[in-house]
Structure formats: structure tokens, C-alpha cells
Design a protein around this nucleic acid. Sequence first.
DNA 1: CCAGAACGGAACATTATGTTCCATGGTTTA
DNA 2: TAAACCATGGAACATAATGTTCCGTTCTGG
Lengths: 219, 219
Amino acid sequence: MVYIGIMETTSSTPMSGRKAQAARNDQVILQAAREVFVADPGAPISAVAERAGVGISALYRRYAGKEILLRKLCSDGLKLYIAEAEAALADDGDPWTVFARFMRRIVEADTHSLTLSLAGTFTPDEDLHRESAHAERLALEVFERARDAGILRPGLEVADLSMIFEQLASVRLGDEERTAQMRHRYLALVLDSLRLTSAGPLPGPPPTAEEIGRRWSTA
Amino acid sequence: MVYIGIMETTSSTPMSGRKAQAARNDQVILQAAREVFVADPGAPISAVAERAGVGISALYRRYAGKEILLRKLCSDGLKLYIAEAEAALADDGDPWTVFARFMRRIVEADTHSLTLSLAGTFTPDEDLHRESAHAERLALEVFERARDAGILRPGLEVADLSMIFEQLASVRLGDEERTAQMRHRYLALVLDSLRLTSAGPLPGPPPTAEEIGRRWSTA
DNA sequence: CCAGAACGGAACATTATGTTCCATGGTTTA
DNA sequence: TAAACCATGGAACATAATGTTCCGTTCTGG
């Protein structure tokens, strides 16, 4: 293919200029990477470039290697998770509404698709560990607030939420929109169950934070 | 490693004889294959041989190639599913008990780990299609019997069961036993929700058989 | 004791994929 | 306008992974 500068006509940011294009590529590449790796965690890096409509070198100029890119994606996911948790904590409306919305937002953000499928495929960063710990802390707060409000089924633990998010992330049917639809369907199902304050406790010991975290050690 | 005949001392089947050992290997290999591919659908065939404690040629003597082996595993899974469905249909005890047990058995049999993770990685057989259709038919009967008994939440469809099985199959934590424990935990959660006969309908159109089946077309 | 079945595992062929490299051609500044 | 600069595209390369074949070895049955 011949090298052709992309002539943008739409623009909130200045349309041309090499820097503008580069900045746009920053976004395009990350978006493509997310889509590609969510669909197939083992996808080759060239697939990301194709999806983004750029050459491979555009990728390597930004990220020194595949692992760096994966770390970046995970980090972004955690940041998103943290933001949603903080939003939930800042909201002092009806406890159940706040809790349910938090769950819905996380499912929509699809943070756990990467988290789950990428676990063990690369060595976590120091920053990643910090962010992960932070996310855990906030999630615990969100959970405890709901529990203390007495709106949750007895026996539930924070770690259960992680497992539920991962299960919902495993739902993948057709295009992105259809997938989102299906996930909402099963989230609704689970939420009704989480709400059963008079139900008996769940069988088996809940997952521990250690069990959940261990999967990140490079196999 | 030097070739050393395995001297079995325990035996329900005659302990020695090349044929006896071969028959035993038939089982060992299938078992190993199931374990390996459930843990990692993309695992190399050599990993199966190692796990089984046999050489590669023992594998190739039985299955002409990887795909044949995968087909065999899927077929076995479907047979298991069919057997459980038939057992449920033959049981005319309390409808909810029968239904819940069916769900539990399928989760325990872990049929959907393979089904899910292998979808699209090989071209389905003619026999596979037949068995799959049969399984679907029986599952529908099991489902309808439960629904007609009025014990299911309104709006549910058979296809929802498949999706739920797949979600539960995505739960994987530590060793096999711990994983089974966790799956029971979340199955219990979901079952409570499926039982909510007075709950509102679930959001979004349910998955169609076509949507679920399409994932088998070799990508 | 021999023919043949079953096996172990090295060797091979092929593919997949991460990474490097360089010519190309916009962009910008002097 | 001209030259330096820099992001880019994509071919080329190195390598690792893995499905499959092949051959010498070992054991059983007759």
C-alpha cells in the first residue's frame, strides 16, 4: 500500500498536522487493541495494527512491545473501575440503586474481559499492583456500604462480585451491542438474587482475595 | 526414557497383556485430553501425551490428528449432556428438585468448558451436529417440563440455560475441587433467581438457538 | 522363537508471531 | 523554498511453538 496521509474533514481537534494525527492514532490504537484482545487474548500484534488501520511501526513507536501494551490496557481498565467505584461512593442516593448502578456500569465498561483473559499472560507492573490494590480497596467500600445498608443477601463477600463480573464477561454473543444486551440480561438475573436478603447463605467458602490474585502470577 | 512395561498389580481387567494396557491407555488418554484442553484449549498435543504419561505415538495411533481428538471430546461431552437430560426426563419427582438437580449435574459434568472454549477451533462433524441437535431437543423438553410446572421465572428460555452453563464454566479457581465448589456457589445464586416465579421478565430478547450455534462455524 | 502390535520420543516441516529496519513522504522551521 | 525532522507503512528477519511422521525398541501371542 502506498503511504497516504489521512485527510480528516471532521475535527474537534485541529484536523491536520502530524501531531494531531499522531494524537488521534494514540486513541485509535488503544481502542483497536482493546477490541482485538478482548475478542482474542492471544491475538497477534499485527491484528491490532490492522484493526487500527495503521502500520506496525505506529504501534512500536508507542509501546516497546506487546507486554507494555497489555499492561497499558489493564491499567486503563483498572482506572475505569476505580472511577466507577469512586462515583458510587460519592452517590448517597438509595443504597440499592447505587449498588445496582455500580454493577451495571462495570459490566458496561467491560473491564473484566481483559482482566480475566489476560491474567497470567504477562508479568504485572509495580504500578499495576498499586492500582489493583486501590481498586480492591474501593470495591470493598462500595460493597460494605451496601451490606451495611442491609440490602444484600447474607453470606456475600466482595470477592463474589469479582467472580460475578468475570462470569458476565464470559458472555459473548454476536456483535458488541448484542453482547451488551445479553450481559444486562444475566446481570438482572444475578442482581435479583443478590437482593434476596432473606435467602439462605451460599454454599462453600467464598473466594479469597488471595485466590483471585494468584492467577496473575506468570504461569 | 527407556521403554518400560507398566506392571499393574491392581486389576478389575486382566492386569497384563498388551491389549489390556492399550485399553487402559484409551481411557487414560481421553481423561488427560479432557483435563488438558479444559485448562487450556490451545494446549499442544504433546501436553496431552505428557499428562497421560504416554508417548505421542500412542495418541496418533488412536486419533489421526488433533481435530479428531477434539471432536471425540466434544462428542463425549454431548453424550454426557444427553444422558443427564434423559435422566431428568425419566425422573417424575418434584419438578423443581428434578430441574435443579439437572442443572447441578451438568455443572458438575463440566460439559460446557470444552464446548465453550473449543467452539470455532475445529470444523464440527456430521455426527456432532446430530448429537448436538439431539441434546438441544432433550434440553428443551427438560426446560418445558419445568416451565409447565410453573416453577420458573417468567420470560426464561431454554437458550438461557446454555448461557448460564457457559458462565458457570468460566469460573475457574485453583484446583478442580475448589473450582467445583465455586461453581456450586454461583449456581445456587442463579438458581434462586430462576426460581423467582413472581419476578418481572428479564431485559432484552433471549439468545436464539441460531446465535448460540453460529459460534461453531470455523472462524 | 518369531511376527506383529504398541510404544517412546527424536526429528522434521511448517506456521505463527514478536521485533527490527529502512525508504517514503508529510510537516515545519529558518 | 529548502532542508531537517519525524511518524509511518510494511517487508524482512529471527525465533519459538507445534502438528505430524518415522524408526528403533519392547512386549505378547502363538
